[in-house]
Nucleic acid binder design. Structure first.
Lengths: 344, 344
DNA sequence: GTGAAAGCGCTAACAA
DNA sequence: TTGTTAGCGCTTTCAC
């Protein structure tokens, strides 16, 4: 049996010829449109069956007035990242319920690559896109949006107008986490964050500042480290903080991998039961560690579903004002965030 | 600014009109084909720029003789699963280097859904598919393959002929893991596996049996539990095993979530430092646990890349005999697999 | 080097 | 209820 590109697909015309009707009639039957006699319908169906006919959506879309491809583009930072993939899955599920498939790509937080992928998606005439904007200027996204492409941003809002987005309670949940640590008596709370160009990082840092202020604590700048991309830099930064003359008694880590890095540092110093830790973003097995890691958990399926619903609605012609949906995150207490400061 | 489906895209004809050339000439310029004067080329490019022209790959593909959509389908079990998403990412990367985009879907290990998604993909005329076959009969996949669709199966081989696939060293690596435990002196090695309908489960179980045999150990059937889908059933099964009069001194867990369940059970009983554990499939943070979890790690990027390469080659007309590529897994020692049996 | 005509597979608009 | 004609945006074929 051949392994090549394979034989030609049968066409509507061939079905029509076999059923001895016009292609238009076949079209009606295949699409379940009214105005086709039962006998003719049966004949067409039989012919389609015999030939193994399968409709060509690309050709149909080309001709139809709505021009829909029943496909949306999803452009995230890294599809192998747990957050991104959970989001993709949620979008996929919601889209499939509307007969829509997903063309997925990873932008690597690289604007050039994001633009390139955007072009690839538009060449395939996707009906809309769900995008996790790469850091920095969003001119490519803005341009695409200006052309009229339905677009929803997730995780990070647009820096331009007229576009829906879905984010979580970055600032509020961060503030609450810090307040929680403060309520336990912590006065030296460190902050470890990811790239400052990211909106989420900024929001979480702002929440940290708000929490300190609200708890009547003064910011100690030497307890703040940002631009930590990945767990290795985060681990190094945490070690530095813990080595200070007056080290933090609690840490707020503003991102997944940063939390992991901080945990490694705490463990390496044997302080993971003595220094409190609350991380932003949940991760698998956080409950299996000792102590369990207290985290702010985003409702990732909720975010994905909402984003999909928004883009599908826009595709269906919804022209209501742009929406910035905020899906609440929740604090999950597991132990690490409940460690009190050392007494005395 | 409108939020609706947006304005019409400019067409090649409009570009041609503005540049005062024929559409054919525009086509040549856009596609970088020879036979277009430099002056005309410039005029066309300028016109395309002015109008914001972007080629329509779907229309082009409809007319071109190769009929390529430059799109492949990826049908995995669950795109939010770490294994699946890492695989998707690897396929995506390799495909993108060939200008190919990925239409992704989750089959939920449900044959009806898998078939439905396959139909959706074929309606969009993907050039080929990479599939993680749902358990049970593969008739839908077989049919699709018979139609000539280039197809590569990943993780699990086809039950029909003429089709490429990429898997890992399930059996050999499982046997080696068991032999390793046996070499430490373990004589009562339990096996926890997931659904028996899965080929990977069967292979890993076979490897377990081979390992026992090769080490001169006799199988104790009561130490074998399968059909554990998810970590909760796995945890329950592990508890049962550990509660036996003569419990296992080591466990081999044949899947990701099963390993997690076993860890939970060990922890709940406070035996995680006394009972050895080797799991199949690596997972994040396996090194942060105490002890670190020794695992058999698949080369997921390697598998994905290979699968993408195979399907792209078939799409390009490669008609060499079908390949079953086996990408080696490696044992990662972290502590849990190095625990000796209790002395005496 | 450039263009006119035909047509990919399908559906809109109309006619019968 | 059914068919005919035209044409979606593009590329092929072949003529100039």
């Amino acid at each position: 049996m051949g392994q090549g590109a394979g034989r030609r697909e049968p066409t509507m015309r061939e079905v029509a010829a076999l059923a001895k009707v016009s292609t238009k009639t076949v079209s009606r039957v295949i699409n379940g449109l009214p105005g086709a006699g039962t006998e003719v319908t049966d004949r067409v169906r039989a012919a389609a069956r015999t030939l193994g006919y399968r409709p060509d959506l690309t050709a149909s879309s080309l001709r139809r007035s709505d021009r829909r491809s029943a496909t949306i583009g999803v452009l995230f930072e890294d599809l192998s990242n747990p957050f991104d993939s959970a989001l993709l899955r949620a979008v996929e599920d919601r889209a499939r319920h509307s007969g829509v498939l997903v063309l997925a790509g990873s932008s690597e937080d690289d604007r050039a690559l994001q633009r390139e992928l955007l072009v690839s998606l538009s060449a395939r005439r996707v009906d809309g896109v769900v995008v996790m904007a790469a850091g920095g200027h969003q001119d490519a996204l803005h341009q695409e949006r200006e052309r009229g492409t339905p677009m929803v941003l997730v995780d990070r809002p647009p820096t331009f107008g007229g576009t829906d987005c879905v984010t979580t309670t970055n600032r509020d949940s961060s503030r609450d986490a810090v307040l929680r640590l403060a309520a336990l008596g912590h006065r030296d709370i460190g902050f470890l964050g990811d790239r400052r160009t990211l909106w989420t990082s900024q929001e979480r840092y702002t929440g940290y500042l708000e929490g300190l202020a609200q708890a009547g604590l003064t910011l100690r700048e030497e307890l703040v480290r940002t631009d930590l991309h990945g767990d290795a830099p985060a681990e190094a930064a945490a070690r530095t903080l813990l080595g200070l003359a007056r080290p933090p008694t609690a840490l707020f880590t503003a991102q997944n991998l940063v939390t992991v890095g901080a945990m490694r540092a705490l463990r390496a110093r044997g302080e993971h039961r003595r220094v409190a830790l609350i991380g932003f973003d949940d991760f698998r097995l956080a409950d299996l560690l000792e102590p369990g890691i207290t985290v702010v958990r985003q409702d990732v399926p909720g975010i994905g579903r909402k984003a999909a619903e928004l883009v599908l609605a826009r595709i269906d012609g919804d022209t209501s004002p742009p929406v910035h949906a905020v899906v609440p995150a929740t604090l999950v207490r597991r132990g690490s965030g409940e460690i009190p400061p050392p007494t005395g």
